[in-house]
Structure formats: structure tokens, C-alpha cells
Design a protein around this nucleic acid. Structure first.
Lengths: 340, 340
DNA sequence: TTCGGGACTTGACACGTTTTAATGAGCCCG
DNA sequence: CGGGCTCATTAAAACGTGTCAAGTCCCGAA
């Protein structure tokens, strides 16, 4: 049997078998797959027919080797355990799935080292582009992608350079809204509980909090920095605060706030009567909370969708694509934890 | 300049440049990368040095084209918005990250159609293996992978065939534990709220519930089937039940239970005094709930880790690998929502 | 009838790596 | 001293698709 009649790996079917079945050349099959408009409708139909009959599945490796990249994008987020990020990931996945792209998911866990390792891995995989919530402003890991002309969109982080897109929510305003609200409710001694200030999100929310205090002309901010922004960390902070309770607590995310709330209630501290409590992100799971949690809402799912759209636009129209820095405004959601 | 001195795509560095720099042949560089033990220590060091100096990053597409598969695995779960699945995904990602594999994440949203489309995409990407929580027992989408000899591990689903691994939790026992507990607490008129019974998880939990009733010799089960297992669906069910409240409600997952709880409390129904409520999965976010939720705990994160280990074992030792069907036992967690 | 030109199609090569069989360099022992 | 080892390295042949210059075909105008 002639070589041309055998498929790849002596068993499966490749572009050549399809071509033979449809009575065209391999080149034409490739065109049907990649530039359908260039092939006559009749031929196209015959090829599609052959594809279906033979159960042909394109070899993505060969395709990306030749083309320089494949139908895959990378998504790097800070924390796989945080509903805020997984909700964002859902937005990305929905868009990419519609457009027939595969999504490689990576979690950096906030570690520069893991971020860099993942970036290298994505470069190796020849992804078409990358959506990333960076650990910090350090451009080292991004350089790896830039060298290889892999488009990048910043997620939940403003692009410091004008040569890329970003989608963010204004965290300074968010912090201001939160603390402004606490001040309105009469709080003066306010605690800010957040993660490392090297993370932009924490730094901005804190800055917003301070600016609200400055604008009001009264009130003080105690700052508590935690390693991880989890309910567990919230527990520890709350226990620590029990000895000298502030008027109000502003947590830099809802997971922390959930942990704090739990301990306060267990210890009989009345919320909001004794302590006001507000979180950030407005994740869905605080709805059933003992005291419904006030929070700062972000268009989380949309963040993911829009970033994905921007990335695909850059991939599809590298010439005409105009980089955009999109910033959403957050919204103050008042619930029982701050309103008597 | 001779072709051999230029890099791939006239700019980046390839295996050839590394070889030249280290004074060896391309084949040796490849061996350093893939079978380090076959190359002498001195040569190996020289090659690594050259790799670092030139900033070489392997072209994964070329690699998987030649080798037949790459360092990528597929992970297909039912619902990206459900913390149970994202927690499982976290376990998978942690293991794969350690072993330098990339993870392609797909959500089937419980739709056969999306499951099949994703499977095709994974086959196209030449993934090394796939971890999948299947939508149903229909083997059509798995066939696509089996034809191509792509190893598969079932996640949260028992393998019906002995030629693959699976990692599950005993949902029948889980259902029995839940309803047995409700009966112990004196409930007789019990409602079961769950998703489509075509999903094994729902069917098994229901079966367990029924067997608990049978064992007790008393009590009845009202069955409420919802489309989606979300808090929103829980709201609707609860409103529907308000007119004729049962003694107890068993929700097939915690998200449903959260929605149900919220409406009950809003309407002034006392939990657990008037209605007992128990969920399933024991997700972290119910901890801060108004009435802490009783639930059935599963080793979620471990599920992901172990499934990932099994898959990698099958990939690394295709000859000696012994397929395993691992089943964990769930644990009843009693909290306030079922104990006065 | 011939020629020009547009619309499709073709064929062969290139993409960067892995793999195979073959080569070379030592080394031991008869 | 040389034959038969082993271990380390090499050269060249794939892997299956995308690309692009070079056709082929067909139709209408001259």
C-alpha cells in the first residue's frame, strides 16, 4: 500500500486522507479549514463531507508548529480558591469556548516564582495570547511573552505601558466608597484588613480608605496585614482584634470578611450594632451569611468576558487593533452588616 | 549567513543554536531535555549552560508533533461556578503544576453537546490525558479519546469499564447519611431537592435517601427537580415549598441549600425548629451562613490530587499501570441547621 | 480562433523537534 | 595487539499541517 494511502501514526486519518476522499489536494483541505472563503462552495461542501465521513480531527501540534501558534490562550490568575477569580475565569472560558479556543489555566498563588514558571510554560505551549492578573508590577515575566510577540491583556490590573490592553475596576474608588460609608455610619476607629501591599489590589483599596478619611477630616485607620486572604486568616485577625475592638472593619475581600464575621458572632459581638463590617468583591456566597454582608461589587464575570474579547481582537486584527485601558467603577452594596 | 546559524522564525533561538553554542549536535540537546540520564554529566552541564545563556525555550508544538503528545492534560468539569468543582480543579492544578504539566480547563455546563465539543478540542490539542466528570454514562464523547489512545480518568464518577481509573465519593451512602440523620431528628415528611436525575450524583444521592427511608420503615420523600443547582434555583424551590412546608429539606448540594435557607429565614421560617435543612459538599462558604449548614463532606481537594496522580501514573508507565477504581466515603457534618 | 484575466486549485517545501540506526571512543581480556 | 564490548554522540529521516508561487480552467472580448 502506498504511503499516501496510510494515515498519520498508521491508523488515524490526516489531511491527506481527507483530500483523497474528497478528490482534492491537501492544500485545498487546509484552505477549507483556515480560509474557507477562498475555496468554492461546492468543493468546500465535498471536503466537509469527507471530514465527517472519515472522522477527521486536525492535529493541533502540526498546525501550531507551522502557523507559529495554536488555538489556545493562557489564563493566569492569583488564586484558584477565590470565587472572585474563578468567576472571572468563567467569563473568559465562556468567550473562548464560543470562539473555539482552549484555555490553559494557571494559578500563581501570588508567587512571583510560580508566575514566571507558568509564563515560561505558556510560551512553550505557543499560546496565541495570555490573560494575566500579575503578582506585581515587575515586568520580568511579561518580558518573556513580549519577546515572542505573544499578546497580553492585564486582568484586574492597569497596564503600566500603553502597548497593551487592560481591564480593571477602580479599587481606589472602591476603598473610598467602603470607608466613606463606614464614616457616614458614625465609625471613627476603623480597621483595614488586607493582604500584602505589594499586591496592587490591596494597596489601592487601602489608598482609597485613607483618602476617604482625609476627605472627612476625622477618623483613624488601623492596618492589619495578613498573608493569605482566606476565611482562616479572617478568623485569626478577628481573634486578635477582640481585645480592642474598632468601630468598624473594612476587609479587602469577602473571604476575609466571612472569617471575621464568624468569629465576631461566635464571641457574641453584635454586628452591626457594636462593630460595622464591610467586605470587597460581593461574591455570591455571602448572601446566605448570618448577617448579610455589605460589600463593594465588581462586574467580575464581565471583566473576564471583556478581557477575552480584547485579547481575541488583538489576535485577529493585529494591524488595526487599538489598545484600550478599560476601568470599571465599583458599586457600594449596603446590607445588614453596616446598617442597623 | 548560513541557515544553520539562524534561529527559528529568524529571531528566536532553537535547539540548533543551543547545540552550536554547546558544541554538540541537536540530537544531544534533545536528549538532555528528555532523557538526561543518557548523556554524560559534563555534556549535560555544557548544554544547560548554553540553554541559560541563550534563553532557549522549547517549542512545544514541534515537540508534541514529533512525540505524538505534549505536556498538557485536559480537565473537564461540570460547572465552573460551583466551588466543589473549582476546589477539585485546584487539586488537579497543584499536582500538574508540580510535574510541569499545563492544564486545559473546560466546563461542560452539564451539556452533552458541550462535552463532546470539548473532547474534540482536547483530542485536537493532543493532550497527554484527560480528567473528566462526565455529563452522563453515554460513552460517545469518551470514544473519541479512546480511539486515539488518550488515557482518561473519571472524576466524581465511577468508571463503568474496567479499563480506566476513577475517583469517586460514595454518593449513595452520602444520601443515606443525610436522610438517616434527618429521620433521627424526627423528620417524617422530607423533601429532596436536586438536579436532573440523569446526573449520577443526583440519582445516587436520591437512591441513598430512599434507602434510608426504607431502612427506617417510615417517612416519605417529596422530590423536587431543578434545572440548575444554584442558589437562585434554591430560592425558587423554597418559595414553592412555603405553601406546604415539609419537616426537613435535603438539598443535593450546598449552593441549593444556601438559596433555600435564605428564603426560609426571610419568610420567618425557623431553621431548624420548624424545618431541618441539610446540604451536600460542605463547601467552605457556608461556614459564615446565618444558620451554619449541616452537610455531607467530601475530600474534594484530594479527589483532584489523586485523580491527577493516577492519570500521570498511567501516562508515565503505560505498561505496568494498574487501573484503579477508588471510592471515598463521605462524612456527615452536623451543624445548627439540623440540631436545635 | 486566440488571448487576457479572474477564480480556484495544486504541489512541494518548511516549521523545530524527536528518534533511529549507525558511528566513534574507550576499555577489558584473551 | 586486536576483537568484542559498552557507553556517548551524531546525522538524517520523519511527524502532519500551512504557505505561496505556480499552475489550471473557464469565460468573454477582440
Amino acid at each position: 500500500m502506498a504511503r499516501s494511502e496510510l494515515g498519520p501514526r498508521d491508523g488515524t486519518v490526516g489531511i491527506r486522507q481527507v483530500a483523497q476522499q474528497a478528490g482534492v489536494s491537501p492544500g485545498t483541505v487546509s484552505n477549507v479549514l483556515n480560509k474557507p472563503e477562498r475555496v468554492a462552495a461546492g468543493t468546500r461542501a465535498r471536503v466537509h463531507q469527507a471530514i465527517k465521513e472519515l472522522g477527521f480531527v486536525r492535529n493541533g501540534s502540526a498546525s501550531s508548529l507551522r502557523a507559529g501558534h495554536g488555538r489556545t490562550i493562557g489564563l493566569m490568575i492569583l488564586d484558584l480558591a477565590n470565587p472572585f477569580f474563578t468567576e472571572m475565569a468563567r467569563g473568559v472560558e465562556d468567550v473562548m469556548s464560543e470562539r473555539e479556543y482552549a484555555v490553559i489555566l494557571c494559578g500563581s498563588a501570588g508567587l512571583m516564582q510560580r508566575e514566571e514558571r507558568n509564563m515560561r510554560m505558556l510560551a512553550e505551549q505557543k499560546v496565541r495570547g495570555v490573560l494575566v492578573t500579575p503578582v506585581s508590577d515587575d515586568p520580568r515575566s511579561l518580558a518573556l511573552l513580549r519577546e515572542r510577540n505573544i499578546p497580553t491583556v492585564m486582568l484586574d490590573h492597569v497596564a503600566t505601558r500603553a502597548d497593551q490592553c487592560s481591564v480593571t475596576v477602580d479599587d481606589v474608588t472602591g476603598g473610598r466608597l467602603a470607608v466613606g460609608h463606614l464614616l457616614d455610619r458614625g465609625a471613627r476607629d476603623i480597621a483595614f484588613v488586607g493582604g500584602p501591599l505589594t499586591m496592587r489590589q490591596n494597596a489601592d483599596r487601602r489608598a482609597g480608605a485613607l483618602s476617604a478619611l482625609a476627605a472627612a477630616g476625622h477618623g483613624t485607620l488601623r492596618e492589619v496585614v495578613v498573608e493569605e486572604m482566606t476565611p482562616r486568616a479572617g478568623h485569626e485577625v478577628a481573634e486578635q482584634l477582640l481585645g480592642d475592638l474598632p468601630d468598624a472593619i473594612f476587609c479587602a475581600n469577602d473571604l476575609l470578611a466571612m472569617g471575621v464575621l464568624r468569629v465576631l458572632l461566635q464571641q457574641g459581638v453584635r454586628v452591626p450594632d457594636r462593630v460595622l463590617l464591610i467586605g470587597y468583591d460581593d461574591i455570591e456566597y455571602t448572601l446566605a451569611s448570618a448577617i448579610p454582608l455589605s460589600s463593594i461589587r465588581q462586574p467580575t464575570y464581565q471583566l473576564g468576558r471583556i478581557a477575552a474579547d480584547l485579547l481575541l481582537d488583538e489576535c485577529d486584527h493585529p494591524g488595526t487593533h487599538a489598545h484600550q485601558q478599560i476601568m470599571f467603577q465599583p458599586e457600594l452594596i449596603i446590607r445588614e452588616s453596616t446598617s442597623p
